[in-house]
Design a protein around this nucleic acid. Structure first.
Lengths: 220, 220, 220, 220
DNA sequence: TATGAATGAGAATTCATTCAT
DNA sequence: GATGAATGAATTCTCATTCAT
């Protein structure tokens, strides 16, 4: 109506990326609440209202930090998974033979998974939406990549026979998930038997990769 | 290994028993509709109304046969899983060395899983409620039991070294799930590369069990 | 997982067009409730919950008949507007000179609008969403088309001078809306003065179309 | 017609009076931001946060100048409308016959409205709350008053026949709104056809007022 | 005065389950 | 027995407004 200024159809400011903080940053608080809730109840059972309540904030505040529930869940998966991968990768980079490092890496993963069972289960076998599922898959792949690296090194040095490193790495991840996370999710087995189980699984993996009669012995 | 079936338990104690009928039994009709829908859309996406419509009956009728959605889902998992276990168990009971039979059983599972991917994924990695999850777990265990049997026989005959048969069987199941079902769920890989992948995975399993340099070769 | 039946990714049955009724049809009930509420409170103030309550049904039932609020609002606009247009069009089709019929049609519209002011206002000047706005616009256009027809006939017979029939029809609609609906929406004028106002407006329209000193006289 | 402004009243009785400040007056800054945003997105789409961001101030500051969103919106309507009325009133007070001035005033309005369509639409057909609606109505009335003045002069000099000046003025406003703002709000018509449309509309108005075969010819 | 993080009431929509016919 | 319309609790997300710093 006013000839002097004809604003073009522009984006409304402040619409999407609202996450920008200075003062008290509730981000870690929210993430912790979400993590805890997922770890104890799984993805499906967690409502935004519960997360807000657990974090001691209002729902609206939640949405200042995460534009949608999906985003928060993705962040939970990514962060938690990344931490696991980092630790395992650290082990994989140490000194020693490929077999030793492979065993140590798997052993580390196993021990961490046996603690935090519920969360491990959520990361392994409880997808919700495609987008969260994608984040979960990334975790599987990242973990497999660590093992792929070790195996490739072993093959290069002749310690392991030629093989599809990708397939073998997938198998190791599968062994660890199925053997330690899935079936045991709700079983309350005793500590020693779980340890023996883990040792047997890692031995299986070493043999699968090496094609020889290796046996895993956990290092204290 | 005896000829008896390795059952995926179905009855849930403490639940209202399924209603039995006289006249036209819509039970298989409903189950088929539910199965098809789960196979094509996954557990989460299937509503009772959709199942009823697909089965060509009214929602109310659905509830005459299954007191709750959970029960129907459990039945879908149990029946579908039982069929898979049956087929794999059939292979496992044939003539031949333990290694041959183990390879053949795994190969059969792999091929069936690569068809019907969506359903396989639902059975492997898409739990919904604890109760359905429990049914899913029974499937894992039943499948593992088939492999346990083969391994035990191989160990007894000296074909395989002593080992935790339970752990090894879990590993095999894990290898197959992780290697074939999980990551590939939405990937559209070509036939030959998938076959090669399956071969590599089964080879890994054979080596894991035998501790020797076995290689899997699919029988035509 | 089952080789025999691989259902293709199909649409889940029963997803969208749920509107299919046999028994007690709440459709008119809902529409009446929505109409009444819009007529008394305008579009903005009407919540689905209020409509459900007014109709004496549950919210879920509402959604059996209308998949979304927008759809219900569109229906309200369309139906109400169509009725008005029909009545006016009926007048336009009668016997008589173009000027007579134009006057009679406008007079009819005016009288109906002066009753049901709130609703008329909602139809004329209270858009909500683009989709509802589109329905509202259709109403304006449909009403204009009635007048266009009369004017065209008048021009053809020489009763009216050549002109842009479309523009003239828009003007008539604008005169009626602005003169009768908009400003008076909340004014509580007395009956006689409103009648005089309507007469003056229609006279204006007749002169605008004819370019001559016509005067509108309402027929009893 | 005297020189005094035809004001669109702004103050709302019974509301907390607008806060007056000493230091840097952000008032015009905010108003400009709000105006621009309304002009490009309409009332409904504009959030206080967006206005604050556009104005480069904090939300809290916004609320120091306007106690509520409604107040700000009212101010936007009032100011914008006042400007339009001023311009049209300026034309109306020039030299010339009543018909000439009426045509020129309408022509000016039309041209300004065809630019800034979005804002014109917001002012004409996008009310939100009763209070904003009231401000919008004042705009309509103020605009009508300009035309009333011209018509009264024309009637006094015998240039126009006796009539309800109020009704005629409403009609002119209605013709302009309906013909130029409403239906065209989202249409992307070309310049020449819009001009022709405006000419036809103004001709209609001249005839409606004069009762004679006048034709509008835009002055360059 | 200015800031902007925090608030929370409110609105739309979904879907398992019930029950009168 | 079958039907399917009706139910309503539950859940996600929005945005005007407040207030401690």
């Amino acid at each position: 109506m006013d000839g002097e200024k004809i604003p073009v159809e522009t984006t409304i400011p402040g619409r999407k990326p609202r996450i920008r903080h200075r003062g008290p940053d509730k981000y870690p608080l929210i993430l912790k609440a979400a993590r805890d809730l997922v770890a104890s109840h799984g993805f499906r059972e967690v409502q935004m209202s519960a997360i807000a309540e657990t974090a001691g904030i209002a729902i609206g505040t939640l949405y200042r930090y995460f534009p949608a529930k999906t985003d928060l869940m993705i962040e939970v998966v990514s962060l938690t998974a990344q931490r696991e991968v980092d630790v395992v990768a650290g082990i994989a980079m140490r000194e020693g033979s490929a077999a030793d490092r492979l065993g140590a890496a798997a052993w580390t993963f196993a021990n961490r998974a046996l603690r935090g069972r519920r969360m491990a289960h959520a990361l392994v076998a409880e997808p919700v939406e495609p987008e969260v599922e994608a984040a979960r898959l990334k975790y599987h792949r990242a973990l497999a990549r660590v093992f792929t690296t070790i195996i490739e090194q072993g093959v290069r040095t002749g310690e392991f026979p030629p093989q599809s490193e990708r397939a073998s790495a997938d198998c190791i991840v599968g062994c660890l998930f199925e053997g330690l996370v899935g079936p045991l999710a709700d079983t309350a087995s005793d500590e020693p038997s779980l340890t023996a189980h883990a040792v047997a699984i890692i031995t299986f993996c070493l043999r699968g990769v090496s094609g020889g009669p290796l046996t895993f012995v956990p290092q204290p």
